[in-house]
Design a protein around this nucleic acid. Structure first.
Length: 98
DNA sequence: AAGTTGACCTCAT
DNA sequence: AATGAGGCCAACT
């Protein structure tokens, strides 16, 4: 995730692919849920494939923090958490191979 | 040990 | 636009 440039967006699925874990977007979400905040990892640049911040009470506020961080980077977020994914999507250069 | 729960995704109504 | 089905799989009951 640290590879995602400032003011660019990636999806959970993209991050999974980058790890060589195609189809395992859920596990990316699992990992992010566990991130201790604050963290230097730019977790806020990861949104869902529908192009929005996943807004749910189970995130205990990190969804709203994500909103603030994205707006602070210049990425607009509407009232329902939608972001212009098509415009800001980051295309990873190469998958990681271990 | 079996069933449930998610910061998910794609495809089909 | 909004659901629903099915797939995914580590953790947690």
């Amino acid at each position: 995730m640290a590879r995602i440039p400032t003011a660019r967006l990636a999806t959970y699925g993209q991050v999974a692919e980058l790890l060589g874990a195609w189809g395992r977007a859920r596990q990316v979400g699992w990992a992010l849920r566990r991130l201790p905040l604050p963290t230097p990892i730019p977790w806020h640049r990861v949104v869902n494939a529908r192009g929005s911040i996943t807004m749910t009470p189970s995130r205990e506020g990190s969804d709203w923090i994500q909103r603030d961080l994205l707006v602070a980077e210049g990425i607009p977020v509407d009232a329902r958490g939608r972001v212009p994914l098509a415009r800001f999507r980051w295309d990873p250069p190469l998958p990681l191979v271990f």
